[in-house]
């Protein structure tokens, strides 16, 4: 069948199915436990106990099947080995020890650590800078909108955009990549293939993610800056504080929590970063990261055991943030 038709049919079936399910299940509940007659009171109480679960059922099914179950299944797979011709055998921690013995894994860990330090710090700092600066100028909203724009661009699109920036042509011919054009013009030396220098090439990849995430940090921090009570700033100015003191001593401490939220959100994004490395270097020249290492193991080497073990490492790294988020959300609800 034509996929477009299939898509249309799916939309209609999905929407009609959803509404039909909610409508019918509520109708049946009202019919079985009517809110009138001799048992009205008891019926209402019972219906109120059941109804939330009718509303929740489809969403909970999707959540448990697509997110909760995979966590457990991945843990299980990471402790198994696939045998030729189907079936699994218990492997204990063999997959983990095999993974820990691979230099590529440690390269990915080292790079991920670098990403985790550099990207959230740079994106948050730049976002804060832009948020503060654009707050006080007339065309601030246009500037914000343009810096926010890369958020809409896919990681793959961004990779193409930045590959053009890093492009290198043979020495002597006109450089078409901005970076090399500048470099040749300023240093007078030959063009460089930036993405092939081990270690430093990581930073050229990080620039792409910083470029994308700065807008996100800016939007959230800008709202937080606006929420700061005017009086605190005015009082500081009356006391003779200069603009830098107002910013670092008065404003930043008051939005500390928001900064932390932005930082952790970008941290989670960094841990999952896959597309940029996959599209730009595919982990060559020592730019491997965990997510791409895992993809390599799962779908190129077809080693589900080690792939799952790598996925568990990513999960483990996310867990502190997960716990922190849950605790924050609970405190806020109280």
């Amino acid at each position: 069948m034509n996929p477009v038709m299939l898509g249309l049919i799916t939309i209609v079936t999905g929407v009609v199915g959803c509404i039909g399910y909610f409508f019918l299940s509520n109708l049946i509940l009202d019919a079985v436990l009517p809110a009138r007659g001799p048992n009205a009171g008891r019926n209402i109480n019972r219906a109120n106990l059941i109804r939330p679960w009718l509303f929740l059922l489809p969403a909970l099914t999707a959540l448990s099947l697509y997110l909760a179950y995979p966590v457990i299944e991945t843990l299980r797979l990471s402790l198994l080995d696939r045998v030729q011709g189907g079936g699994y055998v218990w492997a204990g921690f063999d997959n983990y020890s095999q993974m820990l013995g691979e230099p590529k894994f440690w390269e990915a860990m080292r790079n991920n650590l670098l990403w985790l330090i550099v990207v959230p710090a740079a994106a948050t700092a730049l976002g804060l800078l832009v948020a503060q600066l654009t707050d006080r100028i007339a065309w601030g909203n246009i500037a914000k909108s343009l810096i926010f724009m890369p958020m809409a661009i896919s990681f793959v699109g961004a990779s193409v955009i930045w590959k053009l920036v890093y492009d290198a042509r043979p020495e002597g011919s006109d450089q078409i990549g901005v970076l090399n054009a500048l470099y040749v013009w300023m240093s007078g030396e030959g063009p460089q293939t930036w993405l092939t220098f081990p270690f430093w090439n990581n930073f050229f990849l990080m620039v792409v993610l910083i470029w994308i995430q700065t807008g996100f940090a800016m939007v959230i921090l800008s709202a937080a800056l606006r929420g700061i009570p005017e009086e605190t700033v005015e009082a500081a100015i009356l006391d003779g504080a200069n603009p830098f003191q107002v910013f670092f001593r008065i404003k930043v401490p008051q939005i500390k929590n928001t900064i932390l939220v932005v930082w952790t959100t970008i941290t989670v994004t960094v841990l999952k970063v896959f597309d940029i490395v996959f599209a730009m270097t595919n982990g060559q020249w020592e730019t491997q990261v965990l997510a791409n290492y895992m993809y390599d193991k799962m779908f190129r080497a077809n080693d589900w055991g080690v792939g799952s073990a790598a996925a568990m490492v990513v999960m483990l790294l996310v867990t502190p943030i997960l716990v922190w988020n849950v605790r924050n959300a609970r405190r806020e609800m109280r």
Binding site: L56, T74, V268, G307, A311, M315, V318, L322, V326, M333
Partner: peptide, 19 residues
């Protein structure tokens, strides 16, 4: 339930691929 959903917000979808 709300706490669980907040927790699931950050679960990396990499975990879900193979299962």
């Amino acid at each position: 339930l709300i706490a669980i959903i907040v927790g699931l917000l950050v679960v990396p979808l990499q975990l879900a691929l193979i299962p």
